[in-house]
Write a protein that binds this DNA or RNA. Sequence first.
DNA 1: CGGTCACTTGATCGTCTTCAATACCAGTGG
DNA 2: CCACTGGTATTGAAGACGATCAAGTGACCG
Lengths: 246, 246
Amino acid sequence: MNAITDFPIVLKPLGGLRPCATCRVRQVSICEAIPEADLARLGACAIGGIARPGTLFIAEADPANAFFNIISGTARLYKLLPDGRRQITGFADGGNFLGLAVSDTYAFSAEAIDTVCYCIFPRIRLRALMHDFPHMEARLLKFASTELVAAQEQMLLLGRKSAQERVASFLMARSRLAAAQGSPACFILPMARGDIADYLGITIETVVRTLRKLRDEGMIAVTNTSEVVICNALALQCLANGSHRG
Amino acid sequence: MNAITDFPIVLKPLGGLRPCATCRVRQVSICEAIPEADLARLGACAIGGIARPGTLFIAEADPANAFFNIISGTARLYKLLPDGRRQITGFADGGNFLGLAVSDTYAFSAEAIDTVCYCIFPRIRLRALMHDFPHMEARLLKFASTELVAAQEQMLLLGRKSAQERVASFLMARSRLAAAQGSPACFILPMARGDIADYLGITIETVVRTLRKLRDEGMIAVTNTSEVVICNALALQCLANGSHRG
DNA sequence: CGGTCACTTGATCGTCTTCAATACCAGTGG
DNA sequence: CCACTGGTATTGAAGACGATCAAGTGACCG
């Protein structure tokens, strides 16, 4: 019996002698603020967690007792209306930090798209860490600022862009993400059409139709529904910017 | 000749012996982080500014050399598309802090709606302040978190709410703001219809028609285009939440 | 008074949604 | 090996909501 495969969510203390020293996302996450010498202290503050595909691991309105640091996989962050309408506010993957909250409850929900591994920092312990390593607070502020700028860009998309411009923007953003892994022109979308639709404020059908249109116009190629090839990045970027109308 | 009335933007060192000590918004702004004894130091870091109605005082893509603390008045924060489409990402009034940026340029523009008074903190000086008063960084983080939560709520609105739900949400948010001044049921909208439209991701005409519909349904009363009276807060809140369909 | 500007109202149009049917693919068991 | 099943993706047709276009109103001001 294997806990990792039999349960949707698994928790365990960070194992090994130097759990954080070998962390693949440490340098790009908020943990970068902790000097090498104090990694043991850092590791003692966190609990490891694994969420299998489709699993909810942060629930809107639940007490915000902990913060999360995504190690691998991709999660969707979203808010719901009472009748089920969903707005995905973002996708979080390796290196992302979740749980910033004003009140003492979470303002959004988070679900694993593929298998997601993360570190859980109980609120109290992270606060202690921030107290002892002030650079961590600066790091967190920078992260929050980045998120804020992204959120404003997304508001522009949701409020003022056409369906085509939205999909183009999304694809270019994904391309930039893939560029970090070395292949800006060809990448895999971990999320389903429904997730893209709820992220862009349109319907599944419109996502499909728009992708088809972009394909017909030769800007992209779509192989097996999840793999995208950018054929004309310039044209796609113009579309995304909205610099094609006048 | 009066500089304050003859020029759109006026800059001057904070005058008086105790400029910050008498500041009306100090307790609710990030300056709350500075102890009483150090107010002289705080005042020396800032420059006073006044922007007359319609004046741009932060321009997207300009070098982000300074941060702003709004003292009085209301500003609109927005992003533009090349063809002129505008998305207002928020309204800033007394106590609000502007200028958080990831890169070294502003990610948005800010214009005065009515006459706006503010304090300008050159980037370097604010950094020094944050270094000497670590609580200020915590305060800033809290502010950024609050903004982030508001931005996510706005994404839900822009992506998934109907025009009626958007206007209702806007009015209830304004009502909550007015509640701080003691009158949640009756307040003045400082911004024009066009600003509301660009904030809610709809057109001026739709704003007008929706306000009229809410008026006809007895939820609100509109006196002179800028004054609103909430007649049925409960119904309006239900509409805003989207809890009226299912 | 003539001008401007913001707001309002009406009529028409288009984009995207909704509804419905079909295709596709992986997994399961006969 | 192939029918069956559940889920996701795709495509088509009809409809609705909000946008666009155009005209009219009212307030303020030189």
